[in-house]
């Protein structure tokens, strides 16, 4: 009935038995107790469940759990390294967080973008974030937060 999978979540190897109809999101939330990724729609349209899978942002509600076998997953809980990630700081400081339900997914998408491109244009930021819905902020402060974070990372590299 259940299928064995092995994968790495936030740097920790995990070996689990999962229901084949369950999604990666179900496994993260129900089996591993990682509640940062949210279930906003369950159909891959809102982005609140976004995690990074093998370096790419994915809607974890669309990935059947057995498909996560052998993968490397980073969730919002895995970003902070002793202290909050610069993206998390930028989101909070710029007022990009209102209700916060979209925030973990939004931050994961933004981090994946900066991993790929360290100095994205505003248009590239908006395009990258367009799969993550936010109903509170109108996106202005979210885009600013990503820009601020990108600048800070650049400055830190330069220093």
């Amino acid at each position: 009935m259940k299928i064995p999978i092995e994968f790495v979540v936030n740097g920790e190897p995990q070996a689990l038995f999962v229901k084949p109809n369950h999604t990666l999101l179900d496994v993260l939330r129900d089996d591993l107790g990682l509640l940062g990724a949210k279930k906003g729609c369950g159909e891959g349209k809102c982005g609140t469940c976004t995690v990074i899978m093998d370096g790419k942002p994915v809607n974890s509600c669309l990935i059947l759990a057995p498909r996560a076998d052998g993968s490397d997953i980073i969730t919002v809980e895995g970003l902070a390294d002793g202290e909050p990630h610069p993206m998390q700081k930028a989101f909070v400081e710029q007022g990009a967080v209102q209700c916060g339900f979209c925030t973990p997914g939004m931050i994961m998408t933004a981090c994946a973008l900066l991993d790929e491109k360290s100095d994205p244009s505003e248009e590239e930021i908006r395009l990258a974030l367009s799969g993550n819905l936010c109903r509170c902020t109108g996106y202005a402060k979210i885009v600013e937060a990503v820009q601020v974070c990108a600048q800070r990372i650049q400055q830190d590299k330069g220093a």
Binding site: K38, T75, P84, Q88, V97, C99, G100
Partner: peptide, 21 residues
């Protein structure tokens, strides 16, 4: 004065327990 939400970092780190959590 502009302050970030007092629980903003809880939300940004995924620590906030929402109703559905």
């Amino acid at each position: 004065r502009s302050y970030p939400q007092i629980d903003g970092m809880e939300k940004a780190t995924g620590r906030t327990r929402f109703a559905s959590d």
